[in-house]
Amino acid sequence: MVNWQFWKRRTPARILRLRPRGELSDAVRVEFPELAPDVRTYLGQAAYLQLGYFETLTRLIRATPDLAEKEALSLAAGAALRKHLALLAEIREEDADPAELMEPFREPLDAFRRATVGARPRETMLTVHITAGLLDDFYLALASGYGERGRRVARILRADNDRRQLAELLTETIRGDEEWRALLSLWARRLVGDTLLVARGALLLDGDGRGEAARAVEPVFTALMAAHARRMDALGLAS
C-alpha cells in the first residue's frame, strides 16, 4: 500500500474545524489541536488534487467514443480545471510559485491516482466521483482554519463540480445491470481506504495515529463518511 504520510515534515500552523457544507451535517462543528499544515502547503496540495481530477477526466474523454459520455466528462473536467486555476490564483496571492508548491505532492498524488484508476471507464468515473467528493469535503473542512484565505478557498471548493451527468451515467449503469452494481459497489469500498489515507496524511498525527489527536479527528472522518454514504445511496450503491 502506498504511504500517504507526506506532510509529516511540515510544521503545524492552523486549527482545523469542520463546518457544515451541503451534504455534511449542520450539527457537525469540531475543533481539535493544531494538526493542519501551513497555508502554502495546503494550497499546493489542494491545487494539485484538482489538476489530477482534470487529467483523469480528460484521459477518459479521449478513451470514450460515446458523445453523451464525452459531454458528461467534459463538464466535470472543466469544473476541476476552473477550481485548479482559482487555487493557483490564491497561491500567487501568497507571492509563491504554484509549480514549486505543487511539486512535493506530484509523486504521492500521482501514485494515488495510479492506485485508484479503474480497469474500465465506469470504474474510473466512479473513482473521480468518490475520491473527489471525499477530498473536496475534507479540504473544505481544513479551509476554516486559514482566515480570509480559507474563506476564499472554501468558495472555490463549493463551486459547482458539474458531476451530475457523470453520476447519472453511473446510476443508469447500476440500475440496468446487477453485475455492474456488484462490481462498482466493491470498487467504491476499495477506493475509500486509499482516499482516507490521503486525508489522514495531510494531518500531523504522532506515531501510528492512535493517540489523543487521532481520537480528536474521528468526528471529522465520521462526518466525511456520512456524506460519502449519501453519495453512494444516490447512485444506488451500498456504502
Rank of each mutant, 00 (worst) to 15 (best):
R230I: 06
R120M: 09
A79G: 04
W187F: 13
A229P: 00
L191Y: 02
T56L: 14
T124N: 02
E93D: 14
L101A: 12
E23T: 13
A111S: 13
L204D: 09
V128G: 01
L134D: 04
E218L: 14
P37V: 11
A36H: 03
Q5H: 13
R175H: 12
L135C: 02
A63L: 14
A86S: 15
R9A: 15
L169K: 02
V128I: 13
A214S: 14
T56A: 13
L16E: 09
P108E: 06
R152H: 11
A72N: 05
Q5S: 11
G133W: 03
Q50P: 00
L203K: 06
G209L: 09
I174C: 05
D95P: 00
H228R: 13
R231A: 10
G211P: 04
Q5G: 06
L186P: 00
L87G: 01
L134S: 02
H84M: 10
G209K: 03
F54Y: 15
V28C: 10
A111F: 02
L49I: 14
E148G: 00
E93H: 11
L73A: 10
V153K: 04
D95C: 00
A234Y: 10
R152Q: 12
E212I: 12
R106Y: 12
L60C: 05
S239Q: 06
L204N: 11
A27D: 13
A47D: 03
L157S: 01
T195G: 02
V30P: 00
T56G: 06
W4H: 12
R92L: 11
A96I: 08
R181W: 07
R113N: 09
G145M: 08
R181V: 05
R59Q: 15
R215D: 09
D233M: 05
V28E: 10
H84D: 01
R120H: 11
A80Q: 07
R230W: 05
F221L: 10
R122P: 00
A199Q: 04
S25A: 14
T195N: 03
R189W: 01
F32T: 11
A159V: 05
L85M: 13
A226F: 02
A86P: 05
Y48G: 01
I174V: 15
T124G: 02
Y139T: 07
D136T: 15
A63W: 04
L73W: 08
G78N: 13
K8R: 15
L85N: 14
E93Q: 14
Y48R: 10
S185R: 14
P108K: 04
T171D: 02
R231Y: 05
H129D: 12
D137F: 06
L85I: 08
I156W: 04
A119G: 13
A132S: 15
Y146G: 08
G201H: 07
G118Y: 09
A214C: 07
Q165Y: 11
R120C: 00
A27K: 10
A159M: 06
A214W: 04
I91P: 01
L140F: 15
R181G: 03
M102F: 07
T64G: 03
A143H: 08
A77H: 03
I130E: 07
E55D: 14
P33L: 07
L191C: 01
T131E: 11
I15P: 00
R158I: 00
L126E: 04
